[in-house]
Nucleic acid binder design. Sequence first.
DNA 1: AGAATAGTGTCTGTAAGACATTATGAC
DNA 2: GTCATAATGTCTTACAGACACTATTCT
Lengths: 248, 248
Amino acid sequence: MGLKAGDAEKAFLEQYDPTAFDRPNNAVDSVIYTVFEGGLHVLLMRREHHPYQGNWSLIGGYVDLARDETLEDTAKRKLLEKTGVATPYLEQFYTFGGKDRDPRGWSVTTVYFALIPAQHIQLQANSGARETKWVALSEGGVGEKLAFDHDHILQKCTERLRKKVLYTSLPVHLMPPHFTLNELQDVYETIMGHKMDPKSFRRRLLSADILQETGEMRQTGRRPAKLYQLKQADETFFFTRNIEAAPL
Amino acid sequence: MGLKAGDAEKAFLEQYDPTAFDRPNNAVDSVIYTVFEGGLHVLLMRREHHPYQGNWSLIGGYVDLARDETLEDTAKRKLLEKTGVATPYLEQFYTFGGKDRDPRGWSVTTVYFALIPAQHIQLQANSGARETKWVALSEGGVGEKLAFDHDHILQKCTERLRKKVLYTSLPVHLMPPHFTLNELQDVYETIMGHKMDPKSFRRRLLSADILQETGEMRQTGRRPAKLYQLKQADETFFFTRNIEAAPL
DNA sequence: AGAATAGTGTCTGTAAGACATTATGAC
DNA sequence: GTCATAATGTCTTACAGACACTATTCT
């Protein structure tokens, strides 16, 4: 490709009309998980505007072409607005697109999921009067009809999370800075929906070499437990074998 | 939500202007893999128009809001147009979105990957004079600069494929209707980039219970080999352990 | 017989499952 | 001491790795 082609491309771009063809509506939604009170919870927000005004939905909104450089920026911006949490664990899950999922027409939403430690919950009352709430998940769903196809998205996303917990260290991102192995095991069990053998669990997590002792102990009323923290560079660890799959 | 809210929503939708806010450009691209001549290959097409006119790119294009009901429809339509293959294995990989990846402005592309048996290659010359070609992958890339960020996409997608082959039956979708276990093993080895023990491979694949003998034999010049076919309902099988990871 | 590819026998290694046992603190 | 939770010892099981061996065809 010589100079001539470059000039032609420049000319093309100068006369390019971005509104010439119909484009789908483009959103980013996040499924924000946390674990507390022995249950997996998801953050929802109440919709201020039509469509589905007043319904609960996942945390999301439109890409702001002027402010967001990437889709992940959009997810992070919305997250910060609704939860005040700046940099949780964030992973792209799936993109749903079709002509019927939004009454305004053809729409696309790229869905992320975030894991945030329960301690970080100090949301609500951020950014005006928008309401947000945590709801407990049972059987992968909340007991409520959400806006758009967010029920379906939540269901699928939770399936993915449950599956991924069987072979990764993902749940460490739901923990506070210091935690005991039993606390971490409780979080695994909560997500998986069944109990694990403590010996197997410890063997597995410690051999992954992603945790280090803080030197401190958690003083419960009983035998104190060692506190651990994530080693720096907390990349997700992938085990080469699954832990026993949850029964249904 | 009562009748009144429904009416309000209806009124809202009637006056909704889909062009009121800037929307990103929306595409679907597919990485189409096949294995032949002992190598993993990817299908590319030459771009007819600006930008990157004349460059090679992944198989993709814009969502046609009138013809496509979902993003997957778009992927399938483009696939059919370029390869003549109607229903290969197709899986959503990732969505790339940002303001700098397309000179026309903020753009989003949802990327799928497809696996098609080498036998199905009868493409070219479909749909006008558009050119397509298969290129061999080495080190995850082709030796060529692709349009947009397609180099990067191809790299990441191939990483994902290589990783997934370690714990799934994905490569069966690259096989013709009847094939021998050694032929299947060759395809696994080609993707993973290293050899496997034939005994381990057979144990693993046969215990997955996804194949059945056809009763026929492949007549090579030497000892004939049993031919297998996929059992009906060819859902991807997930092994609970990885096979030995490829060295680099 | 010898070459080549198909396919098996079987031993070792690794990490998970099961579960009994010990350790440490509060009372 | 007892109770409760933390943590370990150790045997079994499941399946992959290694590799020697047998089986079937052709020349």
